[in-house]
Design a binder for these strands. Structure first.
Lengths: 120, 120
DNA sequence: TCCATGCGTTACTAAACGGTAACCAATTAC
DNA sequence: GTAATTGGTTACCGTTTAGTAACGCATGGA
């Protein structure tokens, strides 16, 4: 629960502003891979950063509702807010899907045409 | 042709660094929508920016091989580099596809279970 | 030829941003 | 009880960066 229900406020601008930083994007990628992680676990993936740095990035991600957290003992468990990914990232990606479709089609056509005749 | 063949150098870091800026992401979105545009056409979508600003962003996008340009008369035609979108954006997106799949499944399950029993 | 148009490029400045250090509160282990 | 762990918060600093202004350079039309 918590701040997971304000996902309607997130726009594509916030999303990419967050993803524009390498550390934050890696945090998101790690959360996408492991489903849930503590700050400690996350910070172990960033040996060049002190933990407060990670915490600050998580603060931002939380404010933008890209992630949410629940408390368990003295640990804080972070998870990706799936609504945001589904409602913001997915529609944006749709605009670019034609490019990999086109690329596939083009590569296929090129492969086929080079099989038949390779005049050029 | 031109600088379209160096797409192997682009990584996800460069991509999101570029997309992190609102102007650059909008430029990419416009190019994705219109296939090809001149600098003039692009700058008409940014009434708050002078043309040199757009040009600077395009310079960046070109250096990162996210777009390429060809000259036609005194105009410069810009297009998205489809290889980059296909080779960099697509693999990254794959990590997050499960979220909208999960969301769909979860919404479907919720709808079904609330049909049967809605005991909070 | 002369002027307007379309772009690129270079300093420059003001603002934003990432990272650190230091401190705090809450929880767990001893 | 005390000490250690976990992580949030704030102030601060150095760097980056977006946008502008001003210039140059072609191309196209008169």
């Amino acid at each position: 629960m918590a701040s997971c229900d304000k996902s309607s406020k997130v726009d594509v601008r916030d999303l990419f502003n967050a993803l524009g930083d390498n550390t934050r994007r890696t945090i998101m990628d790690l959360l996408a891979e492991h489903d849930e992680m503590t700050v400690k676990q996350l910070s172990e993936h960033f040996p060049d950063l002190v933990r407060s740095g990670i915490s600050k990035h998580l603060m931002q991600l939380r404010k933008l509702n890209l992630v949410y957290s629940i408390k368990r003992g003295r640990e804080q468990i972070y998870r990706i807010n799936p609504e945001v990914v589904s409602n913001v990232l997915r529609p944006w990606v749709k605009k670019y899907e034609k490019y990999w479709d086109d690329t596939l089609i083009r590569l296929k056509q090129a492969a086929e045409s080079s099989k038949r005749d390779h005049d050029e």
